[in-house]
Design a protein around this nucleic acid. Structure first.
Lengths: 141, 141
DNA sequence: CTTGCCCTTGACCCGTGGGTCAGGGATTAG
DNA sequence: CTAATCCCTGACCCACGGGTCAAGGGCAAG
């Protein structure tokens, strides 16, 4: 299967597939004798996992870090024997996921603070609850 | 006052000041006969307001859109007569602030969803509560 | 006058996840 | 055989808020 079809099959673009490959997220697929990428069904399975995890909020870098385990993850069939199974990851390398969750939490908190500060400035009656952080700048990490 | 001192006075760098000016956020300051920027105390006041608002989470673009009103805002003294006064903006052009708050809210919600999805995948016992959005990708706009 | 710091503009760098050419080869249908 | 698609690599583009470097000119003190 060539790149265009593979991309379409997982809802991506050829560019994205080459990009994942370049970032070490995907094992380089076989090539036809003319040099065109040729994706096997197994490759597609890994690709689907990658897209899934990216969709879940993991970054390309996160996945590059656990690229070696992705084929294993992809090899796991949907397991109809256990419908109560976890969302799907769980095996992925929980450390990565945990770190990403922590990063998301931190970002959410930062944005929430910014929003509240803005809202406090906007609202004429913050009932003296507002924290009034005087130091104006330094809002980005 | 030359750019280095002005920058130091508001806790920024010369580069940042030139950047604000270039983005139309700051009125171009006077120049010495040799072409060096010369900041007046009024310029500094505007600068401080800009830094404050950026620190509150407004973007450079937001401020460029209301650049004309910033000097007015800067001209308002701290008003010791009304210690219950709003955070400081309020006058800024509430529409901009409201839009930024809405954008922040949207981003916060998006990140929260991502985090929850990740957490659901991590946690082996989501008690069949998990939404299972099968369409994997398309998480960033 | 010279030294040393400050200022000028312009241009490229960061990270994220690719999009969009550009120029050339491969594959496939008619 | 030819034309229409597809694919290849490499390179530059987006937003954000500046950081950093380069080459050249200004400014004050000794």
């Amino acid at each position: 299967m060539r790149i265009g079809d593979a991309a379409a099959a997982v809802g991506a673009t050829p560019r994205a597939l080459r990009f994942y490959e370049q970032r070490g997220l995907l094992p380089p697929p076989r090539r036809t004798k003319a040099g065109q990428r040729d994706y096997t069904p197994e490759d597609l399975a890994v690709l689907r996992v990658v897209r899934h995890l990216l969709g879940l909020g993991l970054t390309v870098e996160d996945l590059a870090g656990i690229a070696d385990r992705l084929p294993l993850l992809a090899a796991q069939p949907p397991r109809p024997c256990d419908p109560e199974a976890p969302g799907e990851p769980a095996v992925v390398g929980t450390a990565v996921v945990r770190r990403r969750i922590a990063a998301l939490d931190a970002e959410i908190e930062r944005l929430t603070r910014l929003r509240d500060a803005l809202r406090a400035g906007l609202d004429p009656a913050p009932r003296r609850v507002t924290a009034r952080a005087h130091p104006p700048a330094s809002a980005g990490r």
